[in-house]
Structures are given as structure tokens and as C-alpha cells.
Simulated scan of single mutants.
Amino acid sequence: MSIPPPPGPQLPQDPQGPHGRYPAPQAQGPYGAQGPYGAAGPYGPHPSYGGWGPYPPPGLPPVNGAAIAALVLGILCFLPGVGLVLGLIALRQIKRKGERGKGMAIGGAVLSAVGLALLALSLSTGAVSAFWEGFKEGARENVIVSPDKGECFDAPDGSLEGETYDVEVVPCSGEHDGEVFATVTLPGGTFPGDDRVTKFADDRCYALAGAYAMDSWALPDHVDVYYLTPTRETWSLGDREITCLFGNTDGKGSLTGSLRNDGTTLDADQMAFLEAALAIDAAMVEEPEAFPEEDLAANRAWAQDMHDALAEQGAALEARTWPAGAEQPVAALAEELASARADWAKAAAAGDADTFYVHYDEGYGFHDGPATVTAREALGLDTTPPDGASGETAPEADV
């Protein structure tokens, strides 16, 4: 299907105010865009991949509705006679209209025919009941295929837009269409509707992306967040899982190699550094939508939160024993955070919008600067800020 998600957190406004205010880059702290990922996060504006949705991708004919109904009835073994008839009708319609779904129509008709045969047999004996239950369960598992966290896959048509009832799990080391970074199970009950499922998927997937790819500086610029979601039809088969994944920004290009960088791939020092970054990012993305001249109190309260986050994480960086080669670079970064913290304290106490802007601008001086790049290099992390970040390139290493 192709169900565009509702937009994520709003993009920052254009620079405004007497001091050329530039709002906080979304999910970007002193270590890059590593915080909660909104639609304007390190992956850019993101289309969604509603993997089980009802709408065909652009340029492809629609799936025949009778074919879907025949497949569902065949799998559930509900009204097998109706499923058989619908399958035959679907085949005629597909041939006449050029629609997709021939495989589903044939599968539904075959399953319904088997159901009719077994139903007739069950009238004279109950020996087939156990077999039939196992057959139906296997059919359900084969129809709803969802890869697990850390797995990579190829979509049938190579596109992350449109509908699919199957994907092929492939090694992440080679080319692939998508890489799963999280799965979320929806509560049971009646189907909540496409809009609510999409909104839930959008919120949860962007929030979980940073836990799988903690160092967003290491993510290529062509990476987007997508997701697979249940539809009304698959919901009736027991599908409750949302699959969050990374894919190419154009929805059709491939990725090569795993994007995972978390506790399974990072060492303890890298993890400590990035966890501090995530905490600062979490405060940064809470910047009020209203400008200081519109709501000074809200902006002052947020500036205090920034001060507190920098104080806590700066202290954490100073307290840790770092490897010999990283000790001095991380200490220099901690000093820079302390200087920025003082400006955020002044912004939190500003009596007017103009004063707030002055210290706001100064407070962002730490963001993705040379000290951040040098500390990252010493810890073996990526040193190229994400596209659009304000950092400078890494200094040349001494030979």
C-alpha cells in the first residue's frame, strides 16, 4: 500500500527575529542528530512504507478486491463455497481488467476447494479436524511474513511503496531494499482504522530509530524511515505487528551493509559518549514552536531545560575514565558544554526577547563544532556531520 504518514514534528521556522534566530536543528545535539527522530530528523522528510496497505504503488494496476476476499475466506476456511466462487470471479475480472492478484485468486480458490472437500469428509468422520487446524495455521504464517529486528529484506517489486503480502529475507551484507530496526505489537480488539495505525507507526518508528542507529553521523544521507503496517484484511488473520525499517530515500533504491550501531556493535566508551548526546538531543527537540516575542515564558523554561541537560551530561563526560587518546578531546568538549551552559542560563533569565536571542545564539556555539569532531575521532566514531548540520569537517590527523 502507499499510505503517507501524518507529518512528524514540525520543521524549524525560517530564521526570524532581530538576531537572525535559527531554531534548533531537529534531533541534533553536540554529537549530531541522534535524538528522537521526527519527520525532520537526520533522515529528511520521510514517506512511509505501509507494507500491508490497501493502495497500489504509483504506476501499477490495483489488486482485485474479489481476489483478496477469496484468499481471506480460503485461509480462514469460512464459507468455502463463497471463497471458491469469488476466486473464479476474480480470475475472470483480472483477465478482463488487467488487475493484479491472480496468485491470491488461485490460492483462495484452491484453499476453498480443499475446505469444501474436507467439509464433506468431516460429515462422515472427525479424523481430519486436527490436520485441518494445522493446515490453516501454516497458511496464515505463510501469508503474513514480517522480518525481525536486525534482518534485511527485498520487496517483491523492489519498491518500499505499495502493498505486499510477502518479503524475502536476505543477508544485510549485500544489497537489500530495507533493514528492520524495530517491531511494535498493537493491542488486540477490532481494527482501529488505517489512519490510527499509520499515526501510531509514525510516532513509534521515529522514536525507536535512535536506539538502533545511535550514531546518526554514520547513517548515509540517502536513508529514510519506513514501516510495514497491518491492514483490515491482515488484521483479521491475526496480524498486529508494525515493522519499522530503514530504506532508500526514493523508496526504490537499495542499501548495502547493515546500518546498526548500538550495544551489539559499539564499545562501552562509544556507547557512553552517544548516550550523553541522546540526552542533550532529547532536550533540544523540545524547543517551543512559539517564538520568544510570542511566548517568552515557554522559551525561558526550555532554555533552563537545555542548561540542565548540558550540566548533567557534561558532568557525566567529565566523571568517566576515557581511553588515553580520548581523555583530552572529551575534556575539551566538556569545557565547551560548560561555556554553552552559562549562555543557556542567561537565556533562561532573559527579561525580553532581544536578550533571549543573544544568549540563544551564543548557546548554540557548541553544536557540532571542532571539539565534537575531535572527540568523535578519538573514540573511533564517524566524523562527518549529517547533511545540514552546522559542524566543521574533521581536522587532518597528524602523520
Rank of each mutant, 00 (worst) to 15 (best):
G134F: 04
G174I: 05
I94M: 08
F191N: 07
G101K: 12
L119T: 15
V128G: 04
G107V: 02
N142W: 08
E137Y: 01
L71S: 09
E133W: 07
V170K: 14
I94Y: 02
A69I: 03
V114L: 15
V197W: 10
P156E: 10
E168Y: 00
G107Y: 08
A70R: 08
A105F: 11
E137M: 02
M104R: 15
A67Q: 10
T125K: 11
L73Y: 14
L119C: 09
R96D: 14
G107H: 06
P80S: 03
T190W: 01
L71I: 01
A155M: 09
L119F: 14
Y165I: 02
V143C: 00
G74F: 13
R100L: 15
A90V: 11
G108D: 09
T125N: 12
L119D: 15
A117T: 10
L71V: 02
A182I: 04
A127L: 15
L86N: 06
P61F: 01
F153C: 04
D157N: 13
V110R: 03
F135V: 00
E175Y: 03
F153T: 05
T183G: 01
H176V: 03
A69E: 14
A130W: 08
A105V: 05
A117F: 12
L118G: 10
I144Y: 09
V72P: 00
V170Q: 06
V180Q: 04
L79G: 04
L79V: 00
L88H: 05
F191K: 01
N142E: 07
D195C: 00
Y165A: 06
L86D: 12
K149T: 15
C172A: 09
D195S: 14
A67L: 12
L79D: 11
P156Q: 09
G83M: 07
F135M: 03
H176L: 06
S112T: 10
L88E: 13
T183I: 04
A117C: 08
D166A: 12
P147C: 09
G150W: 04
L79H: 12
G158W: 06
V180C: 06
L60P: 05
L76A: 14
L111S: 10
D195L: 11
G174W: 02
R196P: 01
T125S: 15
V143A: 11
S159C: 06
V128T: 14
E175P: 01
V72Y: 09
L60W: 11
K95T: 12
L76H: 11
